[in-house]
Design a protein around this nucleic acid. Structure first.
Length: 428
DNA sequence: TCTGGGGTCCTAGGACCC
DNA sequence: TCTGGGGTCCTAGGACCC
């Protein structure tokens, strides 16, 4: 058997912010409250967060801006470029508040976390959920919803109910199984964590329509056709925990920096500049988790929405594994040579690092020059420190260029109110 | 005209080996 | 008509997530 079959004795709470990016914007600009708010992706391309008012207008997640631009004036929609440093900062504060409720905390994404509660004696879970909501709202201004249940998948479902069902007041517990069954009967399967469009379609064609149907589905049918991942989901719906709380953040196995360019890039030189910027950024992330990369991949592509789409990538091995930006840039440049074709209008590009080893591990190949390695390591340490403490981009490599080629367009961004002294809000 | 970015896990199928 | 068998390792691509 792949996992234990006994009912879970865990208790999970999933805390998830409501319309997180839109709510963050409202914290520092009260004039956004009560109005439809939409936050845009890089290059102001498409909607990545919507307030409830904007959702009610029919603007979809991921929908391109130009498709609903005409509604902005008529409905008074407030449109903003993404301000990720602000969201990251507020996210961090929320997680610290949640840590006061339990040390068993898994930060699952920028706007949600699982809490392990089985170690506590809690008489009224609904009340407990309300306490969490009020603490986060009071200290950050961001509204959150809380779902409580015996498995992570059920806690996710509970959170969905907490958000959508009137009268829940933002909290829902599925600890009482008969109540859980009643609600499952009403919910369609695509609301389940792990059931995407493809699997939902397949299941519906076989008459499995509600969450309750899925919970009662035949194990063999699920495993044979939809893999063990979905079988695990079905077990979780039955209250059998297959997913544990991951309190420690695991090191990443791949690190990517990819962008859609603000404008077409045509020349080999300009493309190299853009790729170098992405290498520098990816290498910085690599060093922040103390890894060395053994593999680097570079890709470039023209617009997939135009004729004659071209997309290609090249992969190189790094021997020995490294986190040294200049070496990564040299390798990226020769990879770019392999895939660059003249005469095309490039619209996207990126760098992906993988095959990591811990930076602390003894590098057998390094006996040639331990000293050189140490020198490089110190240099990168200084660069990272300056960019982290003074301002990002304080120190750059010549190959990154001085122009803004390959960078993104953000014409509607709110201020750096929490991360820049100059823009700190004044209270009167 | 205008269409995001960064991850994880699993599976199928090819290469290779004995 | 008939074309070994079984194992491992690796990679590309699919599906899903936020």
């Amino acid at each position: 058997m792949p996992f234990e079959l006994s009912p879970s004795r865990h208790i999970f709470a999933l805390v998830d912010a409501n319309n997180f990016y839109a709510s963050c914007e409202r914290v520092f600009d009260p004039s956004l409250r009560g109005k439809p708010v939409v936050v845009l992706s890089n290059n102001d391309g498409c909607a990545i967060a919507r307030s409830n008012e904007a959702k009610a207008l029919g603007i979809k997640m991921g929908q391109p801006f130009f498709e609903w631009k005409s509604m902005v004036k008529t409905h008074g929609i407030r449109v903003l470029s993404a301000n990720f440093s602000l969201y990251g900062d507020i996210s961090h504060r929320i997680m610290e508040i949640l840590r006061n409720f339990t040390p068993d905390l898994e930060v699952y994404s920028i706007d949600e976390a699982f809490l392990g509660l089985e170690a506590f004696r809690i008489d009224d879970y609904w009340r407990f959920g309300q306490d969490i909501r009020q603490a986060v709202l009071k200290h950050t201004g961001v509204p959150v919803s809380v779902g409580i249940a015996r498995t992570k998948t059920l806690a996710k479902l509970a959170n969905h109910i907490a958000k959508k069902r009137p009268g829940q007041d933002g909290v829902c517990s599925l600890l009482a199984m008969d109540e859980a069954e009643r609600l499952m009967k009403e919910l369609p399967i695509e609301k389940v964590w792990g059931i995407g469009g493809h699997k939902a379609q397949w299941l519906k064609e076989r008459g499995i329509l509600s969450v309750l149907d899925l919970r009662n589905a035949d194990d063999r049918l699920i495993k044979k056709n939809l893999s063990v991942v979905t079988l695990r989901t079905v077990y979780e719906l039955r209250g059998i925990a297959c997913l544990d709380l991951a309190a420690a953040e695991p090191a990443k196995k791949t690190i990517a920096t990819t962008r859609t360019f603000a404008e077409d890039v045509r020349s080999r030189f300009d493309l190299e500049e853009a790729v170098s910027v992405y290498v520098a950024r990816a290498a910085e992330k690599l060093r922040s988790q103390s890894s060395l990369a053994g593999c680097i991949q570079v890709f470039i592509a023209t617009s997939p929405f135009r004729l004659h789409y071209y997309s290609n990538s090249a992969t190189g091995r790094l021997i020995p594994a490294t986190d040294y930006t200049p070496d990564l840039m040299s390798c990226a440049r020769s990879l770019l040579d392999q895939i660059f074709r003249d005469g095309l209008a490039y619209k996207r590009g990126g760098v992906i690092l993988s095959d990591f080893v811990p930076a602390a591990a003894t590098q057998e190949e390094l006996f040639e020059s331990r000293e050189k390695f140490d020198r490089q390591h110190r240099l990168m340490g200084v660069v990272d420190h300056l960019n982290a403490t003074v301002a990002h981009g304080t120190v750059r490599f010549a190959r990154e260029g001085a122009s803004q080629l390959g960078s993104t367009k953000q014409t509607r961004r709110s201020g750096q109110v929490t991360s820049s002294w100059e823009e700190l809000p004044a209270v009167r």
